[in-house]
Amino acid sequence: MKNKIILVLVAVLIVLGGYIALRMYNKPHVNVAESDPDLVLFSQTLLEDFESDEISANTKYLEQIIQVTGKIQKLGTANGNGTITLNNGDSMGGIICHLSEKENKKMVSLREGQEIMVKGICTGYLMDVILINCVLVN
C-alpha cells in the first residue's frame, strides 16, 4: 500500500514538473520596444546599486525592463549583434547593452562619449550589468 502511495506521489510530481517546464519554455516573448519601462534611471545609479549590494539589486532589477541614460564608453559586436557599453563615472564596471536585431542599423550613428537612452531587460551582474533585447530610445 505504501509503495502505491509513493508511486502516485512521484507520478504527480513528474507531471507537475513537466507542466511547469512546458509553461516556462513557452513563456511569451516580451517586446521591449513597445513595452513601458518598469524603471527609469541613470547608468551610474544602476551600477552603484549592483556594486554596493548585488543581492538587493538582483531582487530589484532582474527580469525588469529598465530604461537607462548614460554615456557610451565602447561600441562593439557580440554574436553578430551590436553591443553598447555605458559608463558615466568612476566605476570599474559598465552596463553592457545587447541590441536587438532591429536596432543594429542605428549603431552607425553612435559615437563614444555620446549620451544615449537605452531600454532593455536586465539579466544580471558579472562585473558589468547586462541588458538584453535593447532598443535605443529617442
Rank of each mutant, 00 (worst) to 15 (best):
M92W: 03
N81D: 10
I6H: 05
Y125Q: 08
G124D: 07
M92S: 14
R23E: 06
S52R: 15
H29F: 01
T45K: 12
C134F: 10
L86V: 11
Y25H: 12
L110R: 12
K71Q: 09
M24I: 09
L13F: 03
P28A: 13
E34G: 07
L39S: 03
L7P: 00
G93A: 05
A57Q: 11
Y61R: 13
G93Y: 07
G80M: 04
K71M: 04
I84V: 15
N138I: 01
G124M: 03
L126C: 00
E34F: 03
N133Y: 11
Y61C: 06
E48N: 12
I84M: 12
G18W: 00
A21E: 01
H98V: 10
K106L: 03
K27M: 13
T77G: 10
K102Y: 00
L136V: 05
D90H: 04
L7K: 06
A11T: 07
G93L: 07
S109D: 14
V68M: 08
Q64W: 00
T45I: 03
I130S: 13
A21D: 02
F42Y: 11
T83P: 02
L110I: 09
Q44I: 08
R111H: 08
T85E: 13
F50R: 12
C134R: 11
I65P: 04
E51N: 15
V40Q: 09
K60D: 12
L75S: 04
G89K: 06
V40L: 02
L99M: 15
C122F: 04
L126H: 05
I55F: 05
E115L: 02
Q64Y: 01
Q67D: 07
K105V: 10
A57G: 11
V108D: 12
T69V: 04
M24S: 05
I65R: 02
